[in-house]
């Protein structure tokens, strides 16, 4: 197809709320109070940030100890083009920093102007955010140390103590996620959407069974092969079965419950697809009801499935369905035609 690829932005975004459990919660509570906590392992070494379980033997850890607010860069990498949501909005270095009194490293950003200003082994200080809420970004990042190593007593060397006496320990943390995608619907669906703009409904045909699928997906699940041809379908069909939604749904304020969503089997199609049924009380919808597409006004048509606003009764008698369990209809004539074509080709 010579047409350009259909494309649309797709943003997946959600403010996840994570409950922390005691160890992660203690660390985040500490950050809110301006204190950094590690956790002591069985061998006496200290992990910061504190893991809940020992990587060596999987034992549960709980002995929190305070560690220093300065440390040493163990390794670093330059981030010349920061992305939104990262620690700094201008170029910075990512680094693994071993805080004084800890035996493991923490990942964060180090703010220097240029990669020449940072090196492995360099001393850095924590830069705190003014407003802290109990999450890892309460640490804004690190900055080159102002005092030489050893001048600050690492506080984490003592026994485990209750170092944070917060009235309200952190028990959950907000971690919003936002990821942008470029959605492309694929060839079958793209052809369907393009045809929609001309008020045409396309399906595609299985090269083996002759079944017609709508919307077209480019593949026949029956044959496990690409579909062989596009088929134009009527914009009339019948209700195979239906649902009456009696509660409002998010993002569709225009739909007033009760409303009916139904599996519509188009004339000439082998399968049904979901559509809205209007022009009839939801209570009066029947299995077998004949319907036709209600299209958007011509000047509002676009390459979208939303061009069909809903399905409305045609007034014809209901289709008689003999076996309520069978969904969809195999078009026998089309099937035999397709198999004839196959033989002719082979």
């Amino acid at each position: 197809m010579s047409d350009e690829v259909l494309e649309a932005p797709l943003v997946l975004e959600y403010p996840f709320t994570r409950t922390t459990g005691p160890v992660v919660g203690a660390f985040l509570t500490g950050l809110r109070e301006g204190v950094v906590l590690g956790v002591k392992r069985g061998d006496g070494s200290v992990m910061c940030p504190p893991l809940e379980y020992d990587p060596a033997d999987s034992s549960a850890l709980s002995e929190m100890v305070e560690v220093g607010q300065a440390g040493e860069i163990v390794t670093w990498a330059w981030n010349g083009a920061p992305r939104p949501q990262q620690p700094f909005d201008r170029p910075f270095a990512w680094a693994l920093v071993r805080l004084d009194g800890a035996d493991t490293t923490i990942l964060h950003g180090v703010l220097v102007d240029d990669p020449s200003e940072i090196h492995t082994g360099m001393r850095v200080d924590i830069v705190w955010r003014d407003e802290r809420v109990g999450q890892v970004s309460d640490i804004a990042g690190f900055a080159p140390a102002t005092a030489p190593a050893g001048s600050e007593q690492p506080p984490g060397s003592g026994d485990g103590v209750e170092v944070v006496s917060a009235a309200e320990p952190v028990q959950s943390v907000r971690t919003p996620i936002r990821i942008e995608y470029n959605y492309t619907p694929g060839r079958g669906l793209s052809a369907y959407l393009r045809a929609m703009k001309d008020k045409r409904i396309l399906g595609d045909r299985c090269p083996v069974s002759g079944q017609v699928f709508v919307p077209p997906r480019g593949v026949s699940p029956i044959a496990g092969m690409p579909t062989s041809e596009m088929v134009e379908l009527a914009d009339t069909g019948y209700v195979e079965s239906f649902n009456i939604t009696r509660v409002p749904i998010r993002g569709r304020d225009d739909l007033h419950p009760p409303y009916c969503s139904a599996w519509i089997v188009l004339d000439g199609a082998s399968v049904g697809f979901m559509g809205l049924v209007t022009g009839i009380e939801a209570e009066d919808v029947t299995i077998g009801l004949r319907v036709k597409a209600l299209w958007k006004p011509d000047d509002e048509l676009e390459m979208s499935a939303t061009n069909i606003l809903s399905w409305v009764p045609t007034g014809e008698p209901d289709v008689v369905i003999d076996n309520f369990e069978l969904v969809g209809r195999v078009d026998e004539a089309a099937a035999s035609e397709a198999s004839t074509d196959e033989e002719a080709e082979s």
Partner: peptide
Amino acid sequence: LPQPFSTSINAGAGGYFSPIIRRY
């Protein structure tokens, strides 16, 4: 999750399975 070029009338799993239950 949102799906470009399409429309959501389905209201999750309940909206999907209700017509099947109706057939039963």
